[in-house]
């Protein structure tokens, strides 16, 4: 119980609708910082001067609370996403097809594992899209609230994919 209370202290119970709402809550500020640091650590982008021929894509913050089986909020999740709908085909992205497993294939694997008597495990790749480099040149406007004060009109040139980009899942 003690552990439970301790854990609760770091989790916000509300889901902010906008950045300004999020900034009123310390828990959310922490989560946002964590996400921004993540981008820096993974060297997702470099800052470059803006030029006229660039199609610069905006970004947006998405705030979501993760709920466990009992319906208790266990984690606040902030994610910076690109407004992929502003991307132009041929310039910003090529193919958007992504190979995924069919649900039947998953069921077949389950049935097979069951008959063969082995246990199945699962894991997931953290920030999967940040693991790979993208081929196209994609420019992002700077994150609201985290602008570089020395170069406010610079834009980010993406090295790696971001959630919301058309080509993201494909990488």
């Amino acid at each position: 119980m003690n552990h439970f209370c301790e854990h609760m202290a770091f989790v916000s119970q509300v889901e902010p609708k906008s950045m300004s709402e999020a900034l009123e809550d310390n828990n959310w500020i922490n989560v946002i910082h964590e996400e921004v640091n993540q981008f820096a650590r993974n060297e997702v982008w470099t800052l470059v001067p803006r030029s006229k021929e660039m199609n610069v894509i905006g970004t947006k913050w998405v705030f979501k609370n993760k709920i466990d089986e009992q319906g208790v909020i266990v984690r606040n999740k902030a994610r910076l996403v690109a407004k992929g709908y502003n991307q132009e085909e041929g310039i910003d992205f090529g193919e958007t097809y992504v190979p995924v497993a069919r649900l039947e294939a998953v069921k077949l694997l389950l049935a097979y594992a069951c008959l063969k008597g082995f246990r199945l495990h699962q894991m997931d790749v953290k920030r999967a899209f940040l693991n790979v480099f993208i081929d196209e040149e994609v420019y992002l406007s700077q994150t609201p609230g985290f602008e570089d004060h020395n170069n406010p009109d610079y834009v980010f040139k993406l090295k790696k994919a971001l959630y919301g980009l058309k080509q993201a899942p494909r990488q």
């Binding site: 497993a101 998953v106 097979y112 082995f118 199945l120 894991m123 997931d124």
Partner: peptide, 28 residues
Amino acid sequence: DKTFFIKNSCNDIILDQVYVDNIIFGLT
């Protein structure tokens, strides 16, 4: 199925199925 991988090593088999960032795997 291009999202399915298998490895055989001395009678032990590892099967795994990848779904974008989720992975299920089973081992003998």
